[in-house]
Design a protein around this nucleic acid. Structure first.
Lengths: 236, 236
DNA sequence: AAAATTCAACTTGTTATCCAGTTTCTTAAT
DNA sequence: ATTAAGAAACTGGATAACAAGTTGAATTTT
């Protein structure tokens, strides 16, 4: 009979609803940067949702830097005016889950930069970490085993060596998705993995010798196969 | 007298502690991808922290794709092996708040790519949005007002037009930090803002005419001043 | 004996309650 | 009238209790 047609909105939907309502409230009340929002309790009552839902919405907006919660005091509008606030919330609401193609595209972008930066500012400890990951990968592949994880760590070590926090954290965010997709599509077959060892060595050497442009180029070579692979047939 | 020296660890610290303990537990128990962690209650008891702290840690690890919580069932290790898991958690724990320099560096990187992509795949609606933001910015500046937010929306519209979800969400993440820093350091003085109008127009035209390389170059020109500005004196 | 079923013990997610500071309004003293 | 002190009401955060649903073993049926 399915009488529950109306019932039980998805949690994601109610979260977005609350975000919209908070946005509308800020607009309606003309709340300016630094001003205080009504308390969580009042909002939950006004919106007809649980306080938990309100908290989730606030935390999400806090993640994107639009609100700022202060314990035992209140939740405040960040130093972003009405125009920016509305534009950003629209953007946040229309965000879709990333597709594999966009992931790879962005990953390559980040990694080329990371390689160049790492070759410029890397310190001795960074280099050791990269070398360690490189050796671990080689060992795995030469034993005929799967080296997806060691491959990832090699790239993460380079991101870390880049000294760019933002870039590094972005790399960490996309890493799991990359791994699972790689394993799903079996991107790294045996031939590829074996060739990749030398490519890794090339990248490592360039970083070691502090040659930014070369590091970038070697990384580009490394991704060439991946790029073609992803854009040939596996791109859905 | 300050007898509370030992007391009240920072919330961030206890969160990281719990993450470390979860990592150690996974290692100690040799939990493999797909296997189930002990329940939140058991973990909170074992670790001597509240269940809330455990939930926070799990949610953070879930954000980075390392765990997966399933309602009324349990929390499971993602399809990432021990090596990758440990490496990523180390990376997550050693993440520092991004500095302004790394933000700008990364922003420029993302925006050059976004401009190129937008010029390739933009549709009519995307273009309208960009135009709208462009006009709003011009209007503000010509009235002698501050246009930081409208400037941001212009760039966000391009990121959206790029069709790259990952890139777009990264742009949204760094936007508020960019805005507040800009306003703090008064990056956009009147002269700069006025010149920026023409630069925006140049970028828009290139995207409109579907000329990727030109779009990238115009974006680069646009950032030239910003780049120099940030790397001259304001770089702490 | 094997398969289907029931039920009790656990699981996460949600709601309600409590807590430790903050803020603000009242009140009293100067 | 002004200011300072104090208490009461509020606030976000932490904790505890509850609900909804899954799992798996014990039990019944075929």
């Amino acid at each position: 009979m399915k009488l529950k047609v109306i019932a039980k909105k998805d949690n994601q939907e109610v979260l977005n609803d609350v975000i919209v309502k908070i946005r509308d409230l800020i607009n309606y009340k003309n709340l300016e940067p630094g001003e205080k929002l009504p308390s969580e309790r009042m909002l939950s009552e006004k919106f007809g949702v649980s306080r938990r839902n309100v908290r989730e919405a606030i935390q999400k907006l806090e993640f994107y830097g639009l609100l700022k919660s202060i314990p035992q005091s209140g939740t405040f509008v960040a130093q972003i005016g009405s125009v920016g606030m509305n534009g950003m919330i629209d953007g946040i609401l229309s965000l879709k889950d990333p597709d594999f193609k966009s992931l790879v595209q962005t990953r390559i972008l980040l990694e080329l930069k990371a390689a160049r930066l790492a070759a410029t500012v890397r310190n001795t400890k960074d280099l050791q970490q990269i070398k360690k990951a490189l050796d671990a990968y080689s060992e795995k592949i030469l034993k005929g085993e799967d080296g997806v994880q060691e491959d990832l760590l090699f790239h993460l070590a380079i991101a870390q060596a880049s000294g760019n926090n933002t870039l590094n954290s972005f790399m960490l965010m996309i890493s799991p998705e990359i791994i699972t997709n790689f394993e799903k599509y079996h991107v790294c077959d045996e031939n590829y993995s074996f060739l990749a060892i030398q490519e890794h060595i090339n990248i490592y050497e360039a970083i070691k010798n502090k040659k930014p442009q070369e590091a970038k180029q070697k990384m580009k070579d490394h991704f060439k196969m991946l790029y073609q692979y992803c854009y040939s047939d596996k791109d859905k």
